[in-house]
Design a protein around this nucleic acid. Structure first.
Lengths: 137, 137
DNA sequence: TTCGTTGCAAACATTTTGCAGTTTC
DNA sequence: GAAACTGCAAAATGTTTGCAACGAA
């Protein structure tokens, strides 16, 4: 049978922090962000709770950037832009018609598609502006 | 100035193995595959050379599956299907018109897009068939 | 009281690195 | 001979886990 779940102030805090940001945080980032509020917080607890969130679908993993897994608590379907320079992950809300290809893709590869992810790579706004300023100087 | 590059039999072997498979190998997989041919091969050498390939664009990283980075030496633009069950990565050759949105996306997010990646998640053909067989039994 | 939750530190797994010896040019 | 390449083992990094103490129901 399914495991019961007790209330936990720290779990609540972890989810809250993840929902309040759109920086697609790593576990470490969440930990640092919460450390002032919960001085006895442990990194293991952050990992354990994020694990739970992933299992129940409360947050999703959007991949690894610079060796660290990054998460998103915003479940509305959207794409991401990963900055090659600074590792920032920005939301991309442009609608991309990838969904409409599921059936076609399943037909050619013989598998079953449950979801998809679009990741753009390049420069975030900050790094692009910094680079442009440098070239113009 | 740019560093010169010497010939290396092992480097050649590593690239050859990566080009001959379409399993999107991890460093460990490449190492195991080459160990019989080069009994004194070291895992560090595999990592170092794959690093070079990535820098010069000879292979690309397609992300991390089950904690291991996976690579693709096939540079023709295509998408991938990552199996949630067994971690296999399959090529998806269906053309997805994501490129045509670069300009629009750059306009809304203010960054610079250099490339993109589409990752489908679900079940590979093998795992789908296994599951179907199980349900029908 | 029972069982989920946590801190802590140790354990793990993957990847990187320093160094001394080897190979390429 | 100089510079690149490699094996090896140690280090670094991110993540997981065992256990005893703690907190919620």
């Amino acid at each position: 049978m399914a495991k019961t779940r007790s209330y936990s102030k720290k779990r609540e805090g972890i989810l809250e922090v993840m929902r309040q940001t759109n920086c697609h945080p790593s576990a470490e980032w969440v930990y640092q962000k919460l450390k002032p509020k919960f001085p006895d917080l442990s990194l293991g607890t952050v990992y354990r709770n994020i694990s739970l969130f992933k299992e129940e679908g409360t947050v999703i993993s959007i991949g690894t950037v610079g060796g660290q897994e990054r998460y998103d608590a915003n479940l509305a379907p959207h794409a991401h832009l990963v900055c090659d320079k600074c590792g920032a992950v920005a939301d991309v809300w442009t609608e991309l018609p990838v969904d409409s290809f599921y059936q076609e893709v399943e037909g050619t590869c013989g598998g079953k598609i449950l979801r998809h992810e679009v990741i753009f790579h390049g420069l975030c706004q900050n790094c692009l502006e910094a680079e442009t300023a440098f070239i113009e100087s």
